[in-house]
């Protein structure tokens, strides 16, 4: 009811008990929606690159208030419901005022990694809040593709990785871009569109491997980017983690070959060699 996610159109999913409870707790938020904030920051990409962990860590900061759920998927699935619907996900301006009276900044944000693939959404986000800060995590596209595939397998997908890639090449699957195993790893195109619409100074582009190796450093970098003081968390546990074995060497070589030119363009755009 509230979000949607992958099975957004499935009626059985809508009527499940957990979702019903969620809808009931969403109702009072919807009533107070005019008094609620719009996001100050967004983690907009990329899927399977550690956005859940990053968002989880960010919202531990005393100045950051989490949204009703991590992925609102508002701009992708429920944009027609309007900004009043969207505001319902965020804390009220009253909370912000009280926090500021105590001398503490108060910002909020969400993390929907699917947004980054849709150029029209970039414009909508910028028009909603021209000062919005966007964070994008990028992981080695080969690992990302495998992680994406394993995510689908956990949800009942039964083809092999090779077959899945072939289907994506032939565009047989017709999945939304965020579930596309192959093209989901082409970071250059969506980022180029994004930087046409949003100022470079308001976008933080991060290497996901850096984040996995040293979550503390990268989380603090995000805090600085959001204009907040640094904050050390008790622990940095990985969230939304998949358990799976290694990848077939041949498939890996094939994917590396495929992503090489796209990665080269990405390095030029970002101005940094990620070394994938």
């Amino acid at each position: 009811m509230v979000g949607g996610g992958q099975f957004g159109n499935d009626a059985r999913f809508y009527l499940s008990g957990a979702n019903l409870r969620k809808a009931i707790s969403f109702a009072p938020r919807l009533l107070t929606s005019p008094f609620r904030m719009l996001p100050d920051f967004m983690v907009i990409g990329f899927p399977k690159c550690g956005t859940t962990s990053l968002y989880g860590f960010l919202t531990k900061h005393p100045s950051i208030c989490a949204a009703f759920q991590k992925e609102t998927t508002f701009f992708t699935l429920s944009y027609r419901r309007g900004m009043l619907w969207y505001r319902a996900f965020f804390p009220t301006v009253i909370e912000k005022r009280f926090s500021e009276l105590r001398g503490r900044k108060f910002i909020t944000g969400e993390a929907s990694p699917g947004y980054v693939y849709f150029p029209d959404i970039h414009g909508k986000i910028f028009r909603m809040n021209p000062k919005i800060r966007l964070i994008a995590l990028m992981r080695n596209p080969v690992d990302r593709a495998y992680s994406n595939y394993m995510h689908l397998v956990r949800r009942g997908y039964d083809k092999s990785m090779e077959e899945a890639i072939q289907d994506d090449v032939e565009n047989k699957q017709a999945r939304p871009p965020s579930y596309n195993i192959l093209t989901g790893g082409i970071y250059f195109e969506p980022l180029k569109c994004l930087l046409e619409v949003v100022p470079r100074g308001q976008v933080l582009l991060l290497k996901a491997e850096d984040f996995f190796d040293n979550p503390k450093k990268i989380t603090n970098e995000c805090f600085r980017f959001l204009g907040l003081p640094e904050h050390e968390l008790g622990g940095y546990p990985k969230l939304n983690k998949g358990e799976y074995g290694g990848m077939d060497a041949e498939t890996r070589a094939r994917l590396e070959e495929f992503y090489r030119p796209h990665n080269a363009m990405l390095y030029r755009l970002v101005g940094r060699d990620f070394g994938w």
Binding site: F126, L195, E196, V197, V198, P199, R200
Partner: peptide, 8 residues
């Protein structure tokens, strides 16, 4: 300038 204004 590109840091402050979108390229487009």
């Amino acid at each position: 300038l590109f840091g402050v204004f979108p390229r487009g």
